[in-house]
Simulated scan of single mutants.
Amino acid sequence: MNEIAWLRHNKIDLALHLLRVVDDPDTHPLLLLHGLGDSSPTEVPHWAEAWPGTVAALDFTGHGQSTVPRSGGYSPEVLMADADHALAHLTDGDPERKITVLGRGLGAYIALQLAGARATQVRGAILTDGPGLAGGPTGPSSQSFFALPTNGIAPDPYALVELGRDLRPGDYAMSFVRLANQGSGLSAPITVSSIFRPKWLAAVSDQPGVVESTIAEALALYA
Protein backbone atom coordinates (compact mmCIF):
# COMPACT_ATOMS: atom_id res chain seq x y z
CA MET A 1 0.00 0.00 0.00
CA ASN A 2 1.22 3.51 -0.80
CA GLU A 3 -1.72 5.85 -0.69
CA ILE A 4 -0.81 9.56 -0.72
CA ALA A 5 -2.54 12.14 1.45
CA TRP A 6 -1.99 15.63 0.05
CA LEU A 7 -1.47 18.30 2.70
CA ARG A 8 -1.63 22.00 1.88
CA HIS A 9 1.10 24.08 3.57
CA ASN A 10 0.83 27.69 2.42
CA LYS A 11 1.58 27.40 -1.32
CA ILE A 12 3.12 23.95 -0.99
CA ASP A 13 1.41 20.60 -1.55
CA LEU A 14 3.06 18.01 0.69
CA ALA A 15 2.96 14.31 -0.16
CA LEU A 16 2.35 12.18 2.92
CA HIS A 17 2.76 8.52 1.94
CA LEU A 18 0.50 6.19 3.93
CA LEU A 19 2.55 3.02 3.74
CA ARG A 20 0.32 1.08 6.12
CA VAL A 21 -2.89 2.19 7.80
CA VAL A 22 -4.00 0.53 11.04
CA ASP A 23 -7.31 1.48 12.64
CA ASP A 24 -6.58 0.47 16.21
CA PRO A 25 -6.93 2.95 19.10
CA ASP A 26 -4.33 1.01 21.10
CA THR A 27 -1.61 1.89 18.59
CA HIS A 28 -0.17 5.16 17.32
CA PRO A 29 1.46 6.16 14.01
CA LEU A 30 5.13 6.06 13.07
CA LEU A 31 6.21 9.00 10.88
CA LEU A 32 9.34 8.57 8.73
CA LEU A 33 11.37 11.63 7.70
CA HIS A 34 13.91 11.20 4.88
CA GLY A 35 17.38 12.64 4.42
CA LEU A 36 18.54 15.58 2.34
CA GLY A 37 17.92 15.02 -1.38
CA ASP A 38 16.04 11.80 -0.69
CA SER A 39 12.35 10.94 -0.85
CA SER A 40 9.97 8.72 1.05
CA PRO A 41 10.03 4.93 0.70
CA THR A 42 7.20 3.39 -1.30
CA GLU A 43 6.60 0.58 1.18
CA VAL A 44 7.18 -0.08 4.86
CA PRO A 45 10.95 -0.57 5.40
CA HIS A 46 11.88 -4.02 6.64
CA TRP A 47 13.14 -2.62 9.95
CA ALA A 48 9.70 -1.08 10.63
CA GLU A 49 7.62 -4.17 9.78
CA ALA A 50 7.06 -4.96 13.44
CA TRP A 51 5.55 -1.53 14.16
CA PRO A 52 1.96 -2.26 15.31
CA GLY A 53 0.32 0.92 14.04
CA THR A 54 0.08 3.12 10.98
CA VAL A 55 3.35 3.83 9.15
CA ALA A 56 3.60 7.05 7.12
CA ALA A 57 6.43 8.89 5.37
CA LEU A 58 6.59 12.56 4.43
CA ASP A 59 8.19 14.13 1.37
CA PHE A 60 9.63 17.46 2.55
CA THR A 61 9.16 20.62 0.53
CA GLY A 62 11.28 20.41 -2.64
CA HIS A 63 11.66 16.63 -2.31
CA GLY A 64 9.91 13.58 -3.71
CA GLN A 65 6.39 14.35 -4.90
CA SER A 66 5.97 17.52 -2.84
CA THR A 67 6.00 20.96 -4.46
CA VAL A 68 9.32 22.45 -5.58
CA PRO A 69 9.08 26.19 -4.78
CA ARG A 70 10.71 28.92 -6.81
CA SER A 71 14.06 30.39 -5.75
CA GLY A 72 14.65 28.37 -2.61
CA GLY A 73 14.19 29.83 0.85
CA TYR A 74 14.74 26.59 2.79
CA SER A 75 15.47 26.20 6.49
CA PRO A 76 15.07 23.34 8.98
CA GLU A 77 12.24 25.30 10.59
CA VAL A 78 10.33 25.27 7.28
CA LEU A 79 10.70 21.49 7.16
CA MET A 80 9.68 21.23 10.81
CA ALA A 81 6.44 22.99 9.81
CA ASP A 82 6.06 20.39 7.04
CA ALA A 83 6.40 17.62 9.63
CA ASP A 84 3.97 19.40 11.95
CA HIS A 85 1.35 19.32 9.18
CA ALA A 86 1.92 15.57 8.86
CA LEU A 87 1.59 15.15 12.62
CA ALA A 88 -1.71 17.06 12.63
CA HIS A 89 -3.05 14.86 9.82
CA LEU A 90 -2.00 11.59 11.42
CA THR A 91 -3.51 12.56 14.78
CA ASP A 92 -6.67 14.08 13.27
CA GLY A 93 -5.72 17.34 14.97
CA ASP A 94 -6.27 15.80 18.42
CA PRO A 95 -3.60 17.17 20.81
CA GLU A 96 -4.01 14.11 23.03
CA ARG A 97 -3.03 11.61 20.35
CA LYS A 98 0.59 10.41 20.10
CA ILE A 99 3.03 9.81 17.29
CA THR A 100 6.58 8.44 17.05
CA VAL A 101 9.03 10.02 14.61
CA LEU A 102 12.08 8.44 12.96
CA GLY A 103 14.37 10.68 10.94
CA ARG A 104 17.32 9.88 8.69
CA GLY A 105 20.07 12.45 8.15
CA LEU A 106 18.45 15.87 7.78
CA GLY A 107 15.21 14.18 8.84
CA ALA A 108 16.84 13.30 12.17
CA TYR A 109 17.45 16.99 12.87
CA ILE A 110 13.82 17.76 11.99
CA ALA A 111 12.63 14.87 14.18
CA LEU A 112 14.54 16.36 17.11
CA GLN A 113 12.95 19.77 16.52
CA LEU A 114 9.47 18.27 16.28
CA ALA A 115 10.02 16.28 19.48
CA GLY A 116 10.71 19.54 21.31
CA ALA A 117 8.05 21.64 19.61
CA ARG A 118 5.30 19.02 20.09
CA ALA A 119 6.65 17.35 23.21
CA THR A 120 3.26 16.24 24.56
CA GLN A 121 2.41 14.44 21.30
CA VAL A 122 5.71 12.97 20.11
CA ARG A 123 6.21 9.64 21.83
CA GLY A 124 9.88 9.27 21.02
CA ALA A 125 12.13 10.61 18.28
CA ILE A 126 14.70 8.28 16.73
CA LEU A 127 17.72 9.91 15.07
CA THR A 128 19.56 7.82 12.48
CA ASP A 129 22.31 8.20 9.86
CA GLY A 130 21.54 9.60 6.42
CA PRO A 131 22.22 12.45 3.97
CA GLY A 132 22.37 15.92 5.47
CA LEU A 133 22.97 14.82 9.05
CA ALA A 134 25.91 17.19 9.55
CA GLY A 135 24.36 20.38 8.22
CA GLY A 136 26.49 23.51 8.09
CA PRO A 137 28.68 25.37 10.59
CA THR A 138 28.08 25.54 14.32
CA GLY A 139 28.69 29.31 14.42
CA PRO A 140 27.94 32.32 12.22
CA SER A 141 29.76 32.51 8.91
CA SER A 142 29.80 34.78 5.86
CA GLN A 143 26.83 34.56 3.51
CA SER A 144 26.83 34.44 -0.27
CA PHE A 145 24.09 35.03 -2.80
CA PHE A 146 23.58 32.79 -5.79
CA ALA A 147 21.13 31.73 -8.47
CA LEU A 148 20.73 28.13 -9.60
CA PRO A 149 19.17 26.68 -12.73
CA THR A 150 16.02 24.78 -11.81
CA ASN A 151 13.46 22.78 -13.76
CA GLY A 152 10.90 22.20 -11.02
CA ILE A 153 11.94 18.59 -10.53
CA ALA A 154 12.85 17.26 -7.07
CA PRO A 155 15.18 17.31 -5.33
CA ASP A 156 15.40 21.07 -5.60
CA PRO A 157 19.06 22.18 -5.96
CA TYR A 158 18.29 25.15 -3.70
CA ALA A 159 17.29 22.67 -0.98
CA LEU A 160 20.55 20.76 -1.37
CA VAL A 161 22.64 23.92 -1.02
CA GLU A 162 20.67 25.80 1.63
CA LEU A 163 19.88 22.86 3.89
CA GLY A 164 23.38 21.45 3.44
CA ARG A 165 24.91 24.52 5.05
CA ASP A 166 22.26 25.54 7.61
CA LEU A 167 23.54 26.78 10.96
CA ARG A 168 23.37 24.13 13.71
CA PRO A 169 24.86 25.32 17.00
CA GLY A 170 24.86 22.69 19.72
CA ASP A 171 23.06 24.85 22.28
CA TYR A 172 20.16 25.37 19.87
CA ALA A 173 19.84 21.63 19.27
CA MET A 174 19.99 20.96 23.01
CA SER A 175 17.11 23.35 23.62
CA PHE A 176 14.80 20.91 21.81
CA VAL A 177 15.99 18.09 24.06
CA ARG A 178 15.09 20.15 27.11
CA LEU A 179 11.64 20.90 25.69
CA ALA A 180 11.10 17.22 24.94
CA ASN A 181 12.14 16.27 28.47
CA GLN A 182 9.76 18.80 29.98
CA GLY A 183 6.69 17.79 28.01
CA SER A 184 6.91 14.20 26.82
CA GLY A 185 6.44 12.29 30.06
CA LEU A 186 9.04 9.76 28.90
CA SER A 187 12.32 9.21 30.72
CA ALA A 188 14.07 8.99 27.33
CA PRO A 189 12.15 10.90 24.64
CA ILE A 190 15.14 10.96 22.25
CA THR A 191 17.05 7.94 20.92
CA VAL A 192 20.25 8.27 18.89
CA SER A 193 20.80 5.31 16.57
CA SER A 194 23.37 6.91 14.27
CA ILE A 195 27.06 6.09 13.98
CA PHE A 196 28.14 9.47 12.59
CA ARG A 197 28.07 12.22 15.24
CA PRO A 198 28.39 15.80 13.98
CA LYS A 199 28.91 18.42 16.70
CA TRP A 200 25.23 19.20 17.22
CA LEU A 201 24.37 15.51 17.61
CA ALA A 202 27.33 14.85 19.90
CA ALA A 203 26.04 17.66 22.14
CA VAL A 204 22.52 16.19 22.07
CA SER A 205 23.78 12.68 22.86
CA ASP A 206 25.29 13.87 26.16
CA GLN A 207 22.01 15.30 27.46
CA PRO A 208 19.70 13.72 30.05
CA GLY A 209 16.73 12.07 28.38
CA VAL A 210 18.78 10.90 25.39
CA VAL A 211 19.70 7.24 25.01
CA GLU A 212 21.67 5.29 22.43
CA SER A 213 20.28 2.06 20.97
CA THR A 214 19.52 0.26 17.75
CA ILE A 215 16.55 1.26 15.61
CA ALA A 216 14.79 -2.01 16.46
CA GLU A 217 15.21 -1.44 20.20
CA ALA A 218 13.99 2.13 19.93
CA LEU A 219 10.91 1.18 17.92
CA ALA A 220 10.05 -1.55 20.43
CA LEU A 221 10.41 0.94 23.29
CA TYR A 222 8.21 3.65 21.79
CA ALA A 223 5.57 1.29 20.39
Rank of each mutant, 00 (worst) to 15 (best):
A188W: 02
V122D: 04
Q113V: 07
S141R: 14
T128A: 15
V161I: 14
L90T: 05
I126P: 01
S175G: 04
K98D: 08
R118Q: 10
L148D: 11
S144I: 14
G152C: 11
I190W: 01
L148S: 11
D129W: 05
A125M: 05
A180N: 02
G135D: 08
F146P: 00
G136D: 07
A108Q: 08
G107Y: 02
D92I: 00
G185E: 07
G103Y: 05
L112H: 03
P131W: 05
A125V: 06
D94C: 03
G132W: 13
P189F: 08
V161K: 11
S187C: 01
E162S: 09
N181D: 03
M174R: 15
H89P: 00
Y109M: 10
Y109N: 01
L102C: 11
G183R: 02
A159F: 04
L90E: 03
A108Y: 04
D129I: 05
E96Y: 00
E96C: 01
I99A: 08
Q143G: 06
A134E: 13
R178N: 06
G105F: 09
G139C: 02
R123T: 02
K98Q: 14
T100G: 05
A180E: 03
Q113E: 10
D166N: 14
R168G: 00
N181W: 01
P189T: 09
G185L: 04
D166E: 14
S142P: 00
D166G: 00
A134Q: 13
I99Q: 04
G130E: 10
L179S: 14
P131N: 14
V161W: 01
G103L: 10
G103K: 08
S187K: 12
P137W: 03
Q113M: 15
S187A: 15
G103W: 03
T100R: 01
A159K: 08
G136E: 09
T138E: 12
S144M: 11
G116D: 05
P95A: 12
G105P: 04
S193F: 01
P189G: 09
P169Y: 08
A115N: 01
G130S: 12
A111N: 05
A115I: 03
G93N: 07
R168I: 02
L127E: 08
L167H: 11
D94Y: 02
Y172W: 15
L148T: 12
A111S: 14
L186F: 04
V177R: 01
L106P: 02
A147Q: 13
A173K: 03
G170F: 01
G185R: 09
L133H: 06
A117G: 06
Y172R: 12
A159Q: 07
L102W: 05
G103V: 11
